[in-house]
Amino acid sequence: MTNSDVIERHIISVLVDNEPGVLARVIGLFSGRGYNIESLTVAEVDSQKHLSRISIVTLGTPMVIEQIKSQLARLVPIHSVCDLTEMGASIERELALVKIINSGDDRIEALRIADTFRARTLDSTLESFVFEITGTSSKVAAFIDLMQSLGEVEISRTGVSAISRGNRIDLSAK
């Protein structure tokens, strides 16, 4: 048993039946019990079995993280709950679309920084760009920070999607 009060960031990957209300159930659990959601993504991953994967990034003490996992596991439409942070090596990615409006040197600098971050330019006018950037949340955040200092910015982020490294597959029923 860990008694630590340290707040940890965990990525929890949940396999659920893709049925009406399942997302509301998960979100309601978090809001009702006062847990944090840093980000949440969801999409169907198996159209035959109607399974969706929800990736949740959350913050909490070890005791709260344990609670979150066992509370999730008792929901009827949830098949499996994996704590990718605890399981060791995992890959996390987030995608953001960043629109920046500026001109002159700032515009050139924005393009240069986008290039170093390997962001793609999806749209351009004479006074704006839309960049697509993919990476860990912290890389995305760093890019957004820089853009914000160079002009007026609008942002759309997907939230984190994650998967474990190695040859293990999680499609297990509960």
């Binding site: 048993m1 008694n3 005791m63 344990e66 609670q67 066992s70 509370q71 596991a73 008792r74």
Partner: peptide
């Protein structure tokens, strides 16, 4: 019977 009852209010051994 409910794993979510464990370590919710009181940490157990």
């Amino acid at each position: 019977i409910d794993p979510s009852s464990v370590n919710k209010n009181v940490a157990v051994d």
